[in-house]
Structures are given as C-alpha cells and as structure tokens.
Design a protein around this nucleic acid. Structure first.
Lengths: 276, 276
DNA sequence: TGAATAGTGTCTGTGAGACAATATTAT
DNA sequence: ATAATATTGTCTCACAGACACTATTCA
C-alpha cells in the first residue's frame, strides 16, 4: 500500500528510488559506410561495398571477438548522447546521421548480467573520415544474401573473412513482420549479428523513401557513384534511366565535371533538399 | 586497468555487476483499436474511430492524469514479456499483435529518477474484448490532424475531451525523418504524447505495406468495414474500386452474408495469409 | 579504334485515380 | 420509391521496366 501524499512535491521528496530493481544499459552502433576499391582496368569505375565498422574486443566477455562500437550509458546521459559520444571516439566527424534502431534485451545476451542494448544506426561518408581508426577498429565489407528463410552476411576486412547467418521467422499477424534469431555466428560478440542485420534492413527500407543515401556521399558526386551506392545497399543492379528519374529532383547539377578514366567524363551533382 | 583473466569463466566469476551505474526501465504500451458507434440513420453504417486505451493514474507522480498502460520491467523478464504481462492485465485476449516501438529516455521524462521506457504498440479487435476494463482504464477515440509542422490528436472517451499537440522537427539529413517534441499537453502523464503520436505514425505506415490491419478485424468482416478501418487510421477517404484492388489478394470470400440495414447486403470475407 | 561510362529518348504494360453504372435492401 | 451501401466496369494518366541510341574519354 502506498502512503498518502498531499502533493507531487511531497511524494517526490520521500520517493525511494531503490524500490524497483535496476538494470544496466549499453548503446551499440552499427556504423555503416560505403567503401571503394580500385579496379585493375583503368577504364572501370571503383568497386563499391556496403561496409560496417567493427571493433576487436580486447577484454572479457567475448575476448578477441569482433563487436559493434558501444559502451555503457551513464545515468546522466541519454542513449543518443551516449551514441554520439561513442561516434566521436570512433570517427573524427560531426553531424553524423544517427537513428535509434531497436532495443535488444534478451535475458542471456550478456553473460555478465542483465544488460540491455539500445542500438543505433549511423551513416558516414568514408571520404570525410580520417584513415586512422580508433583502437582495434576495422571496416568490414558486407556481402548480403537474403532469401525467404534467412539472411547471410559475409564480412571481410581484407584479413579476416567470415559469415553470419540470421534466421527470419515470419509471424504473420500477432507480431512484427519478421523475427530474427542468430543461426550461425562464430566471430561476433553478444547478439550483434541481429543488430547488424536489423540495421541493414532498416537502411535498405529507408533508402527507397527517404534521402538518407546522401549521408554516404561527399558534397559533390556523379550520378554513377550515387547509383552504385544504391546498388550495393539494395543488392541489385538498377537501370540507369529509371534511377535518374527517381533521384532527379533530389539532386542539383553543378558546373563541375569529373574526368577519371577511359570514358566520357561525368557531371558532378550535389544534394538538393528543397526538392518538390 | 583490468586484471588479467585466464578464461571467460574466470572473468565472469569475479565480475562485479555494480561496476556500472544502473537505471530503471518501464514498458508502456499504446494499445490501439477501432471503436464503432451506432448511427441514428438506420440505413447508415456504424461510425468508426481509431482509439487508444488510457489509464487514469491514482498515484504520484502525475496523479489523476491519464497515461498508457505500463509498468516496471523486472530484471528477469524481457521488455516484451513485461509488455505481454501488462497486456494480459488490461485485456482478456491472447495472441495480441505486439511490436516494439521506440525507447524513450529523456533525462527528465520521469520526475522521480532516471527511468527509460521501452515502448510497444499493440493492436486489438474490440469485438473480442470483454467490456469490463481493468481499473481506471478507458478507450479514447482519436481524431488526428497533421500538417507539416505538427500533429494534433484529439482524445475523447465520452466524458473527457482534450487535445495533445506534438511538434514535428524535420532534421533533413543527420537524423531520423522527424523528431517529435511535446507542444501542448495538460492531461497525459510523462512523455506519453510522444509515444502515442509515434505509435499512430508507425501503424499508419505499416498499414500500407503489411497486413496488420487484420489484427483489428474480427474473423469475418465485410470489405466496407475493412475499408472503414483503413480510412479512420489513414485519416482519409479511399475510393472503393482502388481499395478492393489493393486488398483483393489478402482476403478470401466466404459464403456468409451480412444483412444490416436499408441497403444491399454484403458478403463476408476473411483474412487470407497465403496471398501471392 | 575500342572499351568503358555518361546521358537521353521512347515504347509498353501495369496500376492508381476517377467516375459511372448496376444490384440490393429496409422503411 | 428512396436512400443508403455493395460491387464491378472502364477510361485515362503517370510511371516503372526495358531497350536502344548517342556522346565522350584514354590507351
């Protein structure tokens, strides 16, 4: 039974904040970007890959495994502030695209104790990044294969290469569209395969009805480059005329030109937010 | 500096779970439904309203204000389990549609202390509900008006009627599509206006590309009723032929018929999950 | 000159929006 | 008969998919 209080102030004065059990909370961020790798053929464009930043853990639990950048949320900071703090530690950039993704809270997701993870997705333009990475961080190119039953992501940082497989359970009604469960994972700590797959799925969806792609682009870019970014994230080739129609009112042609190979030079465009 | 451990087991044995500050977590659920109200005209169909279940608080903080059903998350239950526990308390139904919405964690969202809220959205078919409601619960019909700058929701349970207004800030790139902030609210506790508005927005979006609407429907329904549900949630009239085209492969015609007024009877349909 | 990308024109089929027309019921 | 909903037909316009064609560069 609760005592009677005359006012909210009086109630708060007597409130015992230890009445309910508390738990720990962390933030984990799926920082995505698009990497380029040179082609041998001087005529061809750079190869692009959708990529994610992982950190090698140097302490228990999951020592020596890879994980998403993250950390504990202080009692005096919001999860978003914590995410920004971690982003600032991992990159040299301000004003990074940051969006809350999902709160993972399975009871056994951390062997230490009950720790929930309020996860975020961030998008960065790799061109603006320093090459120097914090601690044991490394960019992994992702190759995503998805069918009705599962999603396989191949992760490759040039030295290490491994797959994670996440099973999709379609629950029809009575729950969200899909429920993900880890099916194969030997290299990632915690439930981070779920975070990565959820993040990819979120970005893929939003790519089609928002302008988030431009967070992955430098100020000036060619339409070919922009199309490549869409293609590596969506995981399929797009037809040039259709693509140009779709993004026509999101970009603005500049008088700059890029000459970069044995082929016709391309005009440089920039993002136009005042689109109709 | 961290001590050296020989194995993860050894590390876990010595782990001090009080090393990091902890915080409290609650679950709040926006339980949505569609209410019907009889029309005076015998020919006309029932009027439908998109509605949300609110509870009048009988204790501090925010005593005597309305809030979403919710409660603290135990250390040994997931937020989803907590949400199901609360749903079971408020309704008599099993297998309710339940989806994680967002984690709200502004530092000042609760005057007692730092409490984050992992919020959920639930959809129920009011026809299957008992009329008896738990404690001080009450269904409020919602009238939503949205423009570029803000979202106004009028809440009405037959006895009380009030507005909440939430401001939309468009952050273009560098963050999610919109950021919501409470602009006017005299009747709802905590940051629940944000939860309600976020929930409405989520359901509105998913209505178009998923089958969630059928969670709001009884087993057998007419296409007119189904269309009404879409219309009250989307907040606009739809054209009959277009609507029927869209949902054609999601429903299955039965040989049942509903005769209910001074107009042509309608065939009853049911949900068909094996759609192409 | 050839291989590659850049950029545009155009045809066609699909599908949404709009409107019209017919069917059926209780009062 | 009338007012309401139920149901279907069809026209048009916009647009995505598909393909073809031209432009331009460097080795």
């Amino acid at each position: 039974m609760e005592k009677e209080y005359k006012s909210e102030e009086e109630f708060l004065k007597h409130y015992d904040s230890s009445r309910f059990e508390k738990l720990s909370a962390t933030t984990d961020i799926a920082i995505f970007s698009v990497s380029s790798s040179k082609q041998e053929n001087y005529r061809k464009l750079n190869n692009k890959h959708f990529s994610v930043l992982l950190v090698k853990r140097n302490r228990y639990p999951f020592k020596d495994m890879w994980c998403l950048p993250g950390g504990f949320i202080g009692v005096d900071e919001t999860s978003e502030d914590a995410a920004k703090r971690i982003l600032a530690r991992e990159t040299n950039l301000k004003n990074i695209y940051l969006e809350q993704l999902y709160t993972f809270d399975a009871l056994d997701r951390d062997p230490r104790m009950r720790i929930i993870s309020i996860s975020y997705v961030a998008l960065v333009d790799k061109n603006r990044l320093d090459d120097t990475l914090y601690e044991n961080a490394s960019w992994f190119n992702m190759q995503v294969e998805e069918n009705e039953k599962e999603i396989k992501v191949n992760l490759d940082n040039g030295e290490e290469n491994f797959d994670i497989v996440v099973k999709k359970t379609l629950k029809e009604l009575t729950t969200d569209r899909y429920k993900y469960t880890v099916k194969k994972n030997d290299h990632l700590a915690f439930d981070h395969p779920l975070t990565i797959v959820s993040g990819i799925s979120r970005i893929k969806n939003k790519l089609e009805y928002t302008d988030i792609a431009f967070n992955l682009m430098p100020e000036y870019f060619t339409l070919g480059e922009l199309q490549q970014v869409y293609e590596v994230i969506l995981g399929k080739k797009l037809l040039d005329p259709a693509f140009r129609r779709i993004i026509a009112n999101k970009v603005e042609k500049t008088d700059k030109v890029r000459v970069d190979g044995g082929h016709r030079p391309s005009k440089l465009f920039k993002y136009r937010s005042d689109k109709k």
